[in-house]
Write a protein that binds this DNA or RNA. Structure first.
Lengths: 204, 204
DNA sequence: TGCGAAGCGGACCGAGGGTCCGTATCGTTG
DNA sequence: CAACGATACGGACCCTCGGTCCGCTTCGCA
């Protein structure tokens, strides 16, 4: 058992940092001007404590993200339809994408901060791998979808934090319209007949 | 006339910086460890000169990008089919996307550096606006494509530098296969029948 | 109550983008 | 060709920010 139970003050401080950071990211326009020092100050904690608890900036962002994501993760892993496992791919794929979109709409600065986080692309994340894998599995069970792997990447790209930020924040597109657009697009992708370029799908 | 002709040495230095930076970005793995000081040193120029000529890091990146992009831009604006204006949307959209993909494959570190450039999202760029506008115009002339605006965003998202980097670099997918995947996906999007969710496309 | 281990915190560090200003060069005018 | 303003050079300098270090404190077990 590599897990050693943390000391009480450590646990309290960790919590305080999460709460403070959450608040800071919730009420900020540009997530880049929330610095680690700001978070430490807001949590009434030294910078050392902050880095001890989360390793680095990305670690903290991830912890925040996971914490917020938890309910959705559970709903997907063991919840009722349309998100849960007992759903046909044709229903579940749009539901998953809609859920991701809503999540990013509800957590814009945080999602933005994490995806822009200099350290490493958002694609080399366990989090991304899980969602991509799930989507791909669903897509591969839908006849007419040519390449589940690539399609999953593109559908997820349609919900990237900075695109969402651009559409919702800069262009002012309302939430329900964005959801409808994504739903329409997804339906188009799922419902399309076999592409006309069948002949090249196996080359390389 | 706001344009004043630059002094000769200034023009020469500007060129030298572009050449040096181009070379540095061409042969690097992680574009983040090409620093402004590196570029200045490689161009045998002071940092001040570099910033005087390009304003800031993003300015330099943009200048580099535009320079490389120039041929493609011309081909699109006034070239022969399938990229040029005298092409039916159904042919031109896939051609445009393929061209963008190829460009990013051929200029991976540079594209990555520019799109990751902290200052501002890639969506608030004149460059992006132009491509999005063009794509949208084409898409709106294709019957069966529900929302040209959103579709254009998503199709462009499918060619984002970090996704391309992930697929080509990390997963090792060969160039021709990526092109085929994108072509298939695009064909699916363009050729799909009206989505089943017609009823909601106007709400919001 | 004593004592090691775990944690704390903020001074400190290095990197990197961007600025400043004394000096050098340009190119124009007489 | 000489002189002189305008323009540009360059690199020392500054600032911010992520991340580290280490002497001091607190925890919690016996």
């Amino acid at each position: 058992m590599p897990e050693r139970k943390p000391r009480k003050d450590a646990a309290r401080n960790r919590k305080a940092v999460l709460v403070a950071a959450d608040a800071l990211y919730a009420r900020c326009d540009n997530p880049e001007d929330v610095t680690m020092a700001d978070i430490a100050a807001a949590a009434d904690v030294g910078k050392g404590t902050l880095f001890r608890a989360f390793g680095d900036r990305t670690g903290l962002l991830r912890a925040l993200y996971e914490a917020r994501f938890e309910p959705l993760r559970e709903a997907v892993e063991a919840g009722p339809p349309p998100l849960g496992p007992a759903t046909s791919p044709l229903q579940r794929v749009p539901a998953l994408l809609d859920a991701v979109l809503c999540f990013k709409l509800d957590n814009r600065p945080l999602a933005l901060a994490l995806e822009e986080s200099g350290s490493g692309s958002p694609y080399r994340t366990e989090h991304y791998a899980r969602w991509h894998g799930l989507l791909q599995a669903m897509l591969s069970r839908i006849p007419g979808v040519a390449d589940g792997d690539f399609t999953a990447h593109v559908l997820l790209a349609a919900t990237r934090a900075d695109l969402v930020e651009h559409l919702a924040g800069h262009e002012g597109i309302p939430r329900e319209r964005m959801r409808a657009r994504l739903a329409d697009f997804t339906a188009g992708v799922l419902g399309s007949p076999t592409p006309r370029t069948q002949g090249r799908s196996g080359d390389g």
